[in-house]
Simulated scan of single mutants.
Amino acid sequence: NILQHFCTIKHEPGEKNAGFDVLYHNMKHGQIATKELAEFVRERAAVEETYSKSMSKLAKMASNGSPLGTFAPMWDVFRVSSDKLALCHLELMRKMNDLIRDINKYGEEQVKVHRKTKEEVMGTLEAVQALQVQNGQLQKAREGYHTKCMELERLRKEGAPQKELEKAELKSKKAAESFAASIEKFNRAGGDFEQKMSESAQKFQDIEEAHLRQMKQLIKAYSHSIEDTHVQVGQVHEEFKQNVENIGIGSLIQKFTEQKGTGKDRPGPVGFEEYLSSQLPDNNKKSRAKAFRIPGLGKRDKEPDST
């Protein structure tokens, strides 16, 4: 129990009853932890976004793979796998952003609870301050009483006159009465402090338990989101592996031949063609053939071929 460690009343000079201060500031530190958790998750979301963009870049690179050769269809397997991985990490980024909103919402509620608690424990703070004041007066009264007793004892040893001894005894008696009154006031303040501190310590403990419970719940949501994404990524990798296995070497070659093949018909054998004189032009008909000339001597042969 928190009370057992923070409700001790200090009696020695210079010691303060700082348990309340420790518990109060520990409650405020919970707001810092909430903000830091939100910042951590925000950074994780940025990491997932960067990873998603990188996988999309890889998918585009695969889609631009060379369409030539028998390996070309494999690039589509890489493209599909990379696209799916990009979507997995993009979805995780969205889940992280949703979680950040939940953390911020809790942080707002946390501030309201702390503000309300501060008002409720103001009486304990006043009791702490009153106890510290009484503790200071108690120490002062104790020192004064001891000083007067030592002075009386010294006069007795030195054989001081009776009148002087009576005067010292009176001062010692008054100091004792003042010391006793201080003890009584301190004990009353201590009782009030212990009662109020007990109530406040329980409040602080309830707040811390609720805070830690909520923080663990948020971390659990963070963990589940990552776990779900890892399952999806595993499925994508398994699908990629199966796709690679399912595309056989024979099917790659078959697909290539279907797309790039020039025909299945083989050229037939060439037979001997007999020379037929009837194919020659009739001698009586005017030949339209060009006059015979020696290559290189004609004007046209000296000009570049227009075709």
Rank of each mutant, 00 (worst) to 15 (best):
F204D: 00
F204H: 01
Q205F: 04
Q205T: 02
Q205M: 05
Q205W: 03
D206S: 03
I207H: 11
I207R: 06
I207T: 04
I207F: 13
E208F: 01
E208V: 03
E208S: 03
E209F: 03
E209K: 07
A210R: 07
A210L: 12
H211L: 12
L212R: 03
R213Y: 14
R213L: 09
Q214N: 10
Q214R: 14
Q214L: 13
K216C: 11
Q217K: 14
Q217S: 12
Q217F: 12
I219H: 08
I219P: 00
I219G: 04
I219L: 14
I219T: 06
K220I: 04
K220D: 09
K220W: 08
K220Y: 10
A221Q: 09
A221L: 07
A221D: 11
Y222W: 14
Y222S: 04
S223M: 09
S223K: 08
H224K: 13
S225Y: 02
S225I: 02
S225F: 03
S225H: 01
I226D: 01
I226L: 06
I226M: 04
I226T: 09
I226V: 12
E227P: 02
E227N: 08
D228S: 08
D228Q: 06
D228M: 13
T229L: 03
T229Q: 02
H230C: 12
V231F: 00
V231S: 05
V231I: 14
Q232P: 01
V233R: 00
V233L: 04
V233F: 00
V233D: 02
G234L: 06
G234S: 07
Q235R: 07
Q235S: 14
V236A: 02
V236K: 03
V236W: 00
V236F: 01
H237W: 05
H237R: 10
E238H: 12
E238N: 13
E239S: 15
E239H: 12
E239R: 15
F240R: 15
K241D: 06
K241V: 13
Q242S: 15
N243D: 11
N243V: 02
N243Y: 02
V244R: 04
V244H: 07
V244S: 09
E245P: 06
E245T: 15
E245I: 15
E245S: 15
N246K: 06
N246I: 09
I247K: 02
I247N: 05
G248V: 09
G248D: 10
G248E: 07
G248N: 12
I249C: 14
I249H: 13
G250T: 11
G250N: 15
S251Y: 12
S251C: 10
S251V: 12
L252D: 05
L252R: 03
I253Q: 09
Q254E: 15
K255A: 13
K255G: 11
K255R: 15
K255D: 15
K255S: 11
F256L: 07
F256A: 04
T257E: 13
T257Q: 14
